[in-house]
């Protein structure tokens, strides 16, 4: 009887999750020839990707992004969650909802908005430069654009992660605090010895999904490209590379191989994050 309830979900699930993965793997084993159509090439696409400087360029870029942006965002989120949970804030529900609000804004709108704000012509940076006679760096120049994208992502997702941490903090049993109180533990001691260990699980989840998100970076750079065409290449991130290979270059087989490599790489890195996370806790 259970299958009658689970069945409809599973049918669609197989169609939109399982089948594409298998199909991508199948595609990645072929190459399209000018003459003679598709030819089975086994691992040739994978070998090509591993020695493709554009591919590695994009991977390096998201790796840098991950190492810098994810810790900043999670630290801000953790700080905000602890502040909300401390009971020492005035108007804490106002802060909770304001910091979370950007999550409801579509990535497209968030990127357009920040893109305009960054822009030298009618953006805020332009206004500030004119007004104060400053010479702030241009956020959309090629040396700053990755940081500019990092800021958009931080803006969008700090509040979401904050709520995850905050929800986890909320369910810490009161007895733990009472015990700490009896021991005369101070605020920071309570944070270090009770709060942080208790929300380890939530921090782990947030880290893993931030890692996955970084590797998938696409929307923001792809939209920003219209405002900063010279700073964002077609292989800015692995996801953009696969997208452009497919839809601008018609190289579907090669794009499929890149997608599979990124999938495997993401799982490996997420796994490493999880392992190192739980070791630190031990």
């Amino acid at each position: 009887m259970g299958w009658a309830f689970v069945g409809p979900f599973m049918v669609v699930f197989v169609l939109v999750f399982i089948a594409p993965v298998l199909y991508a793997f199948y595609l990645s084993l072929f190459q399209n020839q000018m003459v003679g159509g598709d030819k089975f090439v086994a691992g040739a696409n994978y070998l090509q990707a591993l020695s493709d400087p554009q591919f590695w360029d994009s991977v390096t870029r998201v790796a840098v992004f991950l190492v810098v942006q994810v810790p900043i965002m999670l630290f801000l989120a953790l700080f905000a969650a602890l502040a909300l949970d401390s009971g020492r804030l005035r108007a804490s529900s106002f802060f909770r909802i304001s910091v979370f609000l950007p999550y409801a804004v579509p990535a497209v709108v968030a990127t357009l908005m920040w893109g305009f704000i960054y822009g030298p012509r009618f953006g805020l940076f332009g206004s500030l430069n004119d007004f104060f006679g400053l010479d702030l760096p241009e956020p959309l120049s090629s040396s700053w654009v990755l940081a500019a994208i990092g800021n958009i992502n931080t803006w969008e997702f700090t509040g979401y992660n904050m709520l995850i941490f905050y929800s986890a903090l909320k369910v810490i049993p009161a007895e733990l605090y009472e015990a700490a109180d009896l021991d005369g533990a101070g605020t920071f001691r309570v944070i270090r010895s009770i709060k942080l260990p208790s929300i380890r699980g939530a921090i782990g989840i947030a880290s893993i999904f931030s890692v996955i998100g970084s590797f998938q970076l696409f929307n923001e750079p792809n939209i920003l490209k219209a405002l900063a065409p010279n700073s964002i290449s077609s292989y800015f991130t692995p996801n953009m590379y696969a997208f452009n290979l497919s839809f601008a270059g018609q190289q579907f087989n090669y794009a499929a191989a890149i997608s599979i490599i990124m999938g495997v790489l993401t799982v490996v890195v997420a796994y490493i994050v999880q392992i190192s996370g739980s070791r630190k806790d031990a």
Binding site: A107, R200, I205, F209, G213, N219, G277
Partner: peptide
């Protein structure tokens, strides 16, 4: 998409079992 969780991934963010659920 984005930490970069797109909404869809952000939804997914809640789905994995916690690596080491604290008691």
């Amino acid at each position: 998409m984005s930490v970069h969780l797109s909404p869809a991934q952000a939804e997914a963010a809640a789905t994995l079992p916690a690596p080491s659920p604290s008691p």
